[in-house]
């Protein structure tokens, strides 16, 4: 069963919290994904660029509106995702609690409903 670990945290830079802290975070992420890979549960992981680089699109009255900035302008932003394949929610929670952002944000774990395999939608199981 696939679960996506969604990591939400307030966006910091080297200037705001120091380069060492950023480097330590990067190391923690490297160790985390190495452990996931070693356990054979990692499908994929991605850390997103800051939300100031994001662009949001909507159709309003049949017209495309393109806007700079995130969909929801909140202090804590979706900062990255990790997709894992594990037997059940307890196993997913066990991995989610080890996600480094748990120390500086919130970690959400959500089952997948369906995903593509070679371009074909396949139910999660």
């Amino acid at each position: 069963m696939r679960y996506t670990i969604l990591m939400h945290y307030s966006e910091e830079t080297g200037e705001s919290i120091g380069e060492e802290t950023i480097a330590a975070g990067r190391e923690a992420f490297a160790a985390y994904t190495a452990a996931l890979e070693q356990a054979g549960v990692l499908i994929g992981a991605e850390v997103l660029a800051p939300s100031e680089l994001t662009t949001t699109l909507r159709m309003v009255d049949g017209e495309l509106r393109v806007q700079d900035g995130p969909f929801a302008d909140t202090k804590e932003q979706l900062g990255g995702t990790v997709v894992i394949d594990v037997p059940d929610l307890d196993a997913a929670i066990e991995w989610a609690r080890q996600a480094p952002p748990i120390h500086w944000g919130a970690v959400e774990v959500r089952p997948g409903a369906t995903h593509t395999v070679e371009g074909v939608w396949t139910p999660n199981r």
């Binding site: 069963m1 037997p87 059940d88 929610l89 307890d90 196993a91 089952p111």
Partner: peptide, 14 residues
């Protein structure tokens, strides 16, 4: 059912 909460008795650590 859908989030697949397992039917297990937690082990000593949990």
């Amino acid at each position: 059912r859908d989030a697949r909460i397992p039917f297990v008795v937690p082990d000593r650590t949990v």
